[in-house]
Nucleic acid binder design. Structure first.
Length: 709
DNA sequence: GTAGGACGAAATCGGTTCCT
DNA sequence: AGGAACCGATTTCGTCCTAC
């Protein structure tokens, strides 16, 4: 159903241009004001008006139209009948939002079915979430199989529902474009048809009196039972397929009873399934989604407050999809399951709207299926917490928590996070375990000053912390070694050691370490999980790791042994080398190995290895030499890398530089080493970050934080 | 009844291009 | 330089459907 919303929204947006200029005026293509919809069919107008009611931006238009209808002001050809219809429709749909318009509605049947369910084509599923199907509410707790057609016990209530549905179907079926074209009478008013069938087409079922009555009254209208079935068959279409069942609440058909149950539990009963990962408060409407989510090794997924804005938006706006349960704080209700260890972090709600404590009965008592609950809200970290020191980092779901509800910043001697590593964390280092960056979307953090000598590598090599054993001891590396000892960093160093013709600065090495360390921490968590839950994978990972590193050494050694065949311009050499460095696939692969290794799972190692190997081949000096190598191409107008042809050799040069060489644009913010493939991207990110920055003091940290991933 | 593969849709985000 | 629009990559979730 979520798929329909964007379409509806698009429709709204499309129609807004025709309506926002005047509440009742329409414009043709030439801009002339029309007295009626010119481009919309009647059903489209109905739907459009329905959609208008969905959004505050346009709802007022419909309301205004209704008022005007009522007052007979702006209606080109007012209809005596539609007046009450419009009001009924609007008032019914703004029952909770426009009290001033609801006076007469108090007299309506309280058991009336939501008017939106009268929307043709079952557009009720387009309703915003606040429009919870009132039918389902009384059915809460009823077994979903009670909705099966074959359930005789429910026949008693079926007529009402069916009547409603079939009534809509009648309306829907009758509001066909064909009769419409001939129905361009002044009395035409789409609002009439929103809640009522066209009198012309349903004279036997809907009288003008009924039209003006609340829709709920329509449910009392008697329909021949055969008509129900006909309409049902027509509506369900595939529902007649053997073995399929359909949900009486929404009319959807499903493959079998089990599917229907899932649907009913998810959609109508709002039963949620909570993620089985400890500390993860995500809940899902379907077991399938829950299981898939729980099986997702991405630790970020299981840390609610670290999820992306998209999810936050979802939570703010809806109760649907996967939503995390409000995490408990010490002073608030414990919403986490009693049976599961609480989250190792406190997450007071950020949005006051979300701070309404859920009733205690909403507490998840079970890990699996939970009782129907209202929309879940993810508790968000306060800005202050967002910049909390790493020690207050919420433990990864994988890492066993202390078992206490509250989590205070662990003592400096936190065994899990080495003190050295913590000290090396960037200020305001991103506490969130970042997902694996999307392909080519990860700005490469480069060092602005890349002039250094190989002697520093010697110094680096002499670093007592720089133990080659780290490479062979991933497990220990995860827990006990300092950042400098991180194998990836060590790999970089190793790489540097074997590739001294490249001017890699020590600071860059340091940057690489910092980059990996921050990113590794959560990833290492996952690896821990892998090792704990799936020792086999962990072993494979380690083996693969060793393999990778050996491969790295070999390949790098091979590369280093090749003569440097470029750099005809010494003055440009440094720059070129910088570019070469951070676009070097070996460098990328080191970075990738971070994820490959720390995303754990030997399953990824094969692919990683393959990718690594191929990348290394790709990254042979021949290909990653600067522009000079372009001349090595047989055709100067053809990029030898991607074989694309260009108009001129200069275009090739530009292409090569922009695409293959990836000349990066370093962030201009002081202290930010992020680099972007384009100036536009750099500036945009910079501006975005500026906007998000609370204060000047956070600016750099934000920059540092983001691209140190 | 449950688990899981497959598919589509939605959302986010970075890169690119166009325009002012 | 920067806003806006567009595009593609990626991730995640809901649903359908099948297999056990």
């Amino acid at each position: 159903m979520a798929q329909e919303a964007p379409q509806a929204w698009r429709k709204v947006k499309e129609e807004q241009s025709h309506i926002l200029h005047g509440s009742k005026q329409k414009h043709d293509a030439a801009g002339k004001v029309l007295d009626r919809w010119a481009i919309m069919s009647r059903e489209e107008e109905i739907i459009t008006l329905q959609q208008f009611l969905r959004f505050g931006e346009t709802k007022s238009i419909v309301e205004l139209m209704a008022i005007q209808e009522k007052e007979g002001q702006a209606v080109a050809v007012p209809s005596s009948k539609t007046d009450s219809d419009i009001r009924t429709f609007i008032e019914s749909n703004n029952r909770t939002r426009s009290p001033s318009l609801l006076a007469h509605l108090e007299n309506s049947n309280p058991s009336s079915i939501h008017h939106f369910e009268n929307i043709p084509n079952s557009l009720a599923f387009l309703l915003p979430f606040q429009y919870i199907n009132p039918v389902s509410a009384p059915l809460l707790g009823l077994p979903p199989n009670g909705l099966l057609l074959e359930q005789p016990g429910l026949r008693l209530r079926e007529p009402s529902l069916s009547t409603q549905n079939e009534y809509n179907e009648s309306s829907e079926s009758e509001v066909s474009p064909t009769p419409y074209k001939n129905d361009q009478t002044p009395n035409r008013n789409a609002l009439t048809s929103i809640t009522n069938v066209e009198p012309k087409t349903e004279p036997a079922c809907v009288s003008p009196i009924q039209n003006s009555a609340p829709v709920s009254d329509l449910t009392k209208t008697e329909h021949p039972k055969s008509s129900f079935r006909i309409h049902r068959m027509r509506r369900m279409g595939s529902a007649s397929r053997k073995g399929r069942v359909f949900c009486n609440a929404c009319g959807k058909t499903f493959y079998d009873k089990g599917t229907l149950k899932i649907h009913y539990n998810a959609v109508h009963l709002k039963i949620k399934h909570r993620c089985t990962i400890e500390g993860c408060n995500m809940v899902f409407s379907s077991l399938r989604s829950r299981n898939r989510h729980s099986a997702n090794p991405n630790p970020r997924l299981h840390m609610p407050m670290l999820r992306n804005n998209r999810d936050k938006d979802l939570i703010r706006g809806t109760s649907g999809a996967a939503t995390p349960v409000i995490a408990s704080t010490k002073s608030n209700l414990a919403l986490t399951s009693p049976g599961r260890p609480p989250m190792g972090f406190t997450t007071p709600p950020l949005d006051p709207v979300l701070q309404n404590p859920l009733p205690s009965q909403l507490v998840f008592s079970g890990l699996k299926t939970v009782q129907p609950v209202p929309p879940f809200y993810r508790s968000l970290l306060t800005p202050g917490e967002m910049v909390s020191p790493p020690t207050s980092l919420p433990t990864s779901p994988i890492i066993p928590t202390s078992g206490t509800i509250e989590q205070h910043p662990p003592p400096p001697s936190e065994p899990i996070v080495p003190a050295v590593m913590m000290a090396t964390h960037e200020p305001s280092a991103d506490l969130a375990p970042k997902k694996k960056p999307r392909k080519s979307s990860m700005p490469v953090k480069i060092e602005k000053e890349i002039i250094d000598t190989a002697d520093e590598f010697d110094d680096e090599d002499d670093d007592p912390n720089d133990g080659g054993a780290v490479v062979n001891d991933m497990s220990h590396d995860n827990h006990c070694h300092s950042q400098e000892e991180m194998s990836p960093g060590m790999s970089v160093k190793d790489f540097s050691k074997h590739n001294r013709t490249r001017c890699i600065s020590r600071t860059e090495i340091r940057r690489a370490d910092s980059m990996t360390s921050e990113d590794q921490e959560p990833e290492r968590d996952y690896e821990n999980e892998s090792e704990s839950s799936e020792p086999k994978l962990g072993e494979e990972s380690m083996e693969g790791d060793e393999h990778i590193h050996s491969e790295v050494s070999e390949k790098i050694l091979m590369n280093s042994e090749r003569p440097d065949e470029n750099h005809s311009e010494p003055s440009h050499q440094d720059i070129i080398k910088v570019k070469e460095e951070f676009t070097d696939p070996t460098y990328d692969m080191f970075y990738m190995s971070q994820y490959g290794l720390y995303n754990g799972g030997g399953a990824s190692m094969a692919a990683l290895h393959e990718s690594f190997t191929s990348s290394l081949n790709y990254g042979s000096p021949q290909k990653f030499s600067p522009e000079g190598d372009l001349c090595s191409s047989p055709d100067p107008k053809i990029c030898y890398v991607c074989k694309k042809s260009f108009k001129s050799s200069y275009s090739v040069k530009l292409h090569y530089r922009n695409v293959h060489l990836k000349e990066m644009h370093v962030c201009t913010v002081a202290g930010c080493n992020a680099a972007f493939p384009s100036r536009r991207s750099r500036d945009r990110n910079r501006n975005l970050r500026m906007e998000r920055t609370i204060g000047p003091g956070h600016r750099d940290s934000l920059h540092l934080r983001r691209y140190n991933q």
